[in-house]
Measured scan of single mutants.
Amino acid sequence: MAAGGDHGSPDSYRSPLASRYASPEMCFVFSDRYKFRTWRQLWLWLAEAEQTLGLPITDEQIQEMKSNLENIDFKMAAEEEKRLRHDVMAHVHTFGHCCPKAAGIIHLGATSCYVGDNTDLIILRNALDLLLPKLARVISRLADFAKERASLPTLGFTHFQPAQLTTVGKRCCLWIQDLCMDLQNLKRVRDDLRFRGVKGTTGTQASFLQLFEGDDHKVEQLDKMVTEKAGFKRAFIITGQTYTRKVDIEVLSVLASLGASVHKICTDIRLLANLKEMEEPFEKQQIGSSAMPYKRNPMRSERCCSLARHLMTLVMDPLQTASVQWFERTLDDSANRRICLAEAFLTADTILNTLQNISEGLVVYPKVIERRIRQELPFMATENIIMAMVKAGGSRQDCHEKIRVLSQQAASVVKQEGGDNDLIERIQVDAYFSPIHSQLDHLLDPSSFTGRASQQVQRFLEEEVYPLLKPYESVMKVKAELCL
């Protein structure tokens, strides 16, 4: 049975990233139509530049190519590739079939990587351009969430054990800070992308030097003109047959890092959902379990974690691919890159769409948070109580021993009897502590235990987050809708 299948058929496997999760716009960027249309555009740009620099290419040939950029006979191309065992030459023939007058000058002087690699770089750039505003929107939604809850005390956790208090907004800023680093890295790697350009079979530009009869300047002009037509500021000066596969490492490393950030955020949300302090959106008709109707599973956060793990592992592909590119190139890269580049971007696209949807509907339960604080705060307040007693004339050592005994009794009630923490009640009825009984409410005010959390939130948002989001103001209103 021949390899390949009808990918629109229910009898043929289709990647869930495309069929179930990723956005239509990201799927289109990695589609065959987008790819092969870009090949034709690159052939047109090459012909236009070659004509401008004096090669015998007519206006009629150029116009014929322009008129057929979208006229792609995919069936013919597939048949040609089956016959020739070469995808680029299959599309040269297919393009030439609908451009008979231009057929002889299509791909003039070029090698397969002229269309293959340059198209990949265009796709990487455009895919990054799709991700950047999506990530900015996630940051914006979380920034709104953090600002609104900047002063809401909550129990902090280290080692997932109760620690000092923080605020809900401050905790959210930990998430935002990681995503801001990801946004900066995505922008950097996007701006650092260079075009492969017009380089020939081993990167020496020998074929173009021959076409222009040894004119170095025209060869350099050709490279520059096509690079500018493709919208790049610069091209690699040095290439082998391909652009260095280190570029793929750079791009997928940034995406993998984004995956790590999203995994951490969504894990926190899942843990908070278990504590009943916070939940992701839950639709009115949504079913959490087929057997347990009360369940409210954090399905979206779980999906993000599941896909983020996949995204983090994909960076190993370009690392290994770059390491086995012998001399000017081997074909070890080809099949692998067809999979890992598309999957990385479709996965990143999915987790950003999902995280935006989550961040637009996060639900906080202040009463649950308050109750958990009441359970733990008495123990945390013991040092403040000791200091207040010393100020009232008591002995630190005597007070410490009193607190120690009462704390152990209260802990026994919590752990052995399943009761509430009654340390404060014990202190309130103990005559030894009568000098500070009137101060206990103040000493137990949760806001006095959150330090500068709310001020940190305000400063972080104003100095770091809002300036970073400013270039994306025009796209901030787009909502994230999930079908599944």
Rank of each mutant, 00 (worst) to 15 (best):
D6W: 11
R14V: 14
S15C: 09
L17M: 14
S19W: 15
C27F: 06
K35A: 07
W43D: 06
L44S: 12
A47I: 00
L55P: 00
T58D: 03
D59V: 09
D59M: 06
I62A: 05
N68C: 10
I72G: 10
A78G: 09
R85E: 06
A90G: 14
A90N: 15
H91I: 03
G96L: 05
H97R: 11
A102H: 03
I105H: 01
T111M: 01
S112L: 04
D120M: 07
D120W: 11
L124H: 14
A136D: 04
R137H: 08
I139F: 00
K147G: 11
K147Q: 15
L152C: 05
T154I: 10
H159K: 01
F160D: 03
Q161C: 03
T166P: 12
T167V: 02
V168C: 02
V168E: 06
L183A: 06
Q184R: 12
Q184S: 11
L186K: 03
D192S: 09
D192V: 13
T201P: 09
G203A: 02
F208D: 04
E213A: 09
E213W: 08
V219W: 08
E220D: 15
D223T: 10
T227R: 04
K229A: 02
K233V: 13
K233L: 06
I238W: 02
G240A: 11
Y243T: 11
K246M: 01
L255F: 10
L255K: 02
K264R: 11
C266T: 14
T267H: 07
T267Y: 10
A273L: 08
N274P: 04
N274R: 03
K276M: 06
M278E: 00
E279G: 05
E279L: 06
Q286S: 02
G288D: 01
P293Q: 01
K295E: 15
K295L: 02
K295V: 00
R296N: 05
M299H: 08
E302R: 02
C305L: 03
P318E: 05
T321P: 01
S323Y: 04
Q325S: 12
Q325A: 08
E328F: 00
D333H: 01
R338M: 02
T347W: 05
A348G: 12
A348R: 00
L355A: 07
Q356F: 00
N357K: 15
N357R: 10
G361Y: 12
V363W: 11
V363L: 13
V364S: 12
R372A: 08
R374V: 07
P378W: 00
M380W: 00
T382G: 07
T382E: 05
T382K: 00
A388I: 07
G394H: 01
R396M: 01
Q397I: 07
D398Y: 08
H400K: 01
K402Q: 13
S407F: 01
Q408I: 15
A410Y: 07
A411D: 00
A411M: 06
S412Q: 10
S412W: 09
V413P: 05
Q416A: 09
D420S: 05
R426I: 06
D430V: 10
H437V: 02
S438P: 15
L443F: 07
L443T: 14
S448T: 12
F449I: 03
T450Y: 10
T450D: 00
G451D: 03
A453C: 12
Q456T: 08
L461P: 03
V465I: 15
P467G: 10
L469A: 13
L469T: 15
K470F: 07
S474A: 13
K479Y: 12
K479I: 13
